[in-house]
Amino acid sequence: MNKNTRVALVLGGLVCGMVGLAFASVPLYRLFCQVTGFGGTTQVSEAGAEDNLVVSDRDMTIRFDSTVNGDLPWKFKPAQRAVDLKVGEEGIAFYRAKNTSDKKVKGVATFNVTPLKAGQYFVKIDCFCFSEQTLLPGQEVDMPVTFYVDPEIENDPNLSDVKTITLSYTFFRDDEEEGQEVSDLSNNAGSNPVIEIN
């Protein structure tokens, strides 16, 4: 094998490796964020807080924030600005969304918490952000999120000063194919209860 062929094979292998890392980087970064809470990424629990957690005496205020990407013709805001609860206590909040267009529109939410260092201790049990949402023309709904603050926060000296956590959502338009299965809020048969506003 001559020198040029060897160099071409090495460069080809390097390119293939870089392409593979590019595809793997998003799921690996998401896994890293979920494990560490990096960037305000919250944790997800399949069980309620009352199943295995001790409620502490520490008070925590959870504030709620919302934004909508300009491509999505929705109004979206929290139904309440904040809730007070104890660390380890399960809480529920609602966000209100309205489709202001004359067409059926799909949306998908991203989320984070601040301060970022609290992300690994903020646990969502049930959330509208786990799936795509579809609103019919003019439809307005309340969407719930159920959560708790993990009592492990008490053992982290870097979070002893945290008394308020802000949960923020941003809704984006989801323009994937219409034939794809989505969670339609008007006929939602899943575990997320949806309350229509009249």
Results as ranks from 00 to 15, higher is better:
Met1Ser: 12
Met1Leu: 09
Asn2His: 07
Lys3Glu: 15
Thr5Ser: 12
Arg6Thr: 10
Val7Gly: 06
Ala8Arg: 09
Ala8Met: 10
Leu9Glu: 05
Leu9His: 09
Leu9Ala: 15
Leu11Lys: 00
Gly12Thr: 07
Gly12Pro: 04
Leu14Phe: 14
Leu14Ile: 10
Gly17Glu: 04
Gly17Phe: 08
Met18Gly: 04
Val19Ile: 15
Gly20Ala: 13
Leu21His: 02
Ala24Cys: 08
Ala24Lys: 02
Pro27Trp: 01
Pro27Gln: 06
Leu28Tyr: 11
Leu28Met: 14
Tyr29Asp: 03
Phe32Cys: 00
Gln34Tyr: 13
Gln34Met: 03
Thr36His: 02
Gly37Ala: 08
Val44Glu: 11
Ala47Cys: 09
Asp51Gly: 04
Val54Arg: 05
Val55Ile: 11
Arg58Asp: 03
Arg58Ile: 00
Ile62Trp: 00
Asp65Gly: 05
Thr67Asp: 13
Asn69Ala: 15
Asp71Pro: 02
Asp71Leu: 14
Pro73Phe: 03
Pro73Thr: 11
Trp74Lys: 05
Lys75Tyr: 12
Lys75Leu: 15
Phe76Ser: 07
Ala79Trp: 06
Gln80Thr: 14
Lys86Arg: 13
Val87Asp: 04
Val87Tyr: 05
Glu89Gly: 04
Gly91Asn: 04
Gly91Ile: 08
Gly91Lys: 09
Phe94Glu: 03
Asn99Ser: 09
Thr100Arg: 10
Ser101His: 07
Ser101Arg: 04
Asp102Ser: 14
Lys103Gln: 15
Lys103Tyr: 05
Lys103Trp: 03
Lys104Ala: 13
Val105Thr: 13
Val108Asn: 00
Thr114Arg: 10
Pro115Asn: 02
Lys117Ser: 12
Gln120Gly: 11
Tyr121Phe: 14
Lys124Asn: 09
Ile125Pro: 04
Ile125Glu: 00
Asp126Thr: 12
Cys127Gly: 09
Phe128Ile: 02
Phe130Lys: 07
Ser131Gln: 13
Glu132Val: 11
Gln133Leu: 08
Leu135Thr: 08
Leu136Asn: 10
Gly138Ser: 05
Gln139Glu: 15
Glu140Pro: 07
Glu140Gln: 10
Glu140Thr: 08
Val141Thr: 06
Met143Pro: 02
Pro144Asn: 09
Pro144Ile: 08
Val145Ser: 00
Thr146Glu: 14
Phe147Val: 01
Phe147Met: 12
Val149Met: 03
Asp150Ile: 07
Glu152Gly: 07
Glu152Ser: 10
Glu154Pro: 10
Asn155Cys: 00
Asn158Gly: 00
Asn158Cys: 09
Asp161Cys: 02
Lys163Asn: 14
Thr164Asn: 10
Ile165Val: 13
Ile165Leu: 00
Ser168Arg: 07
Ser168Ala: 11
Phe172Met: 00
Asp174Asn: 15
Glu177Met: 06
Gly179Glu: 15
Ser183Asp: 13
Asp184Ala: 14
Leu185Val: 06
Asn187His: 12
Gly190Tyr: 08
Asn192Trp: 04
Val194Leu: 03
Glu196Asp: 12
Asn198Arg: 07
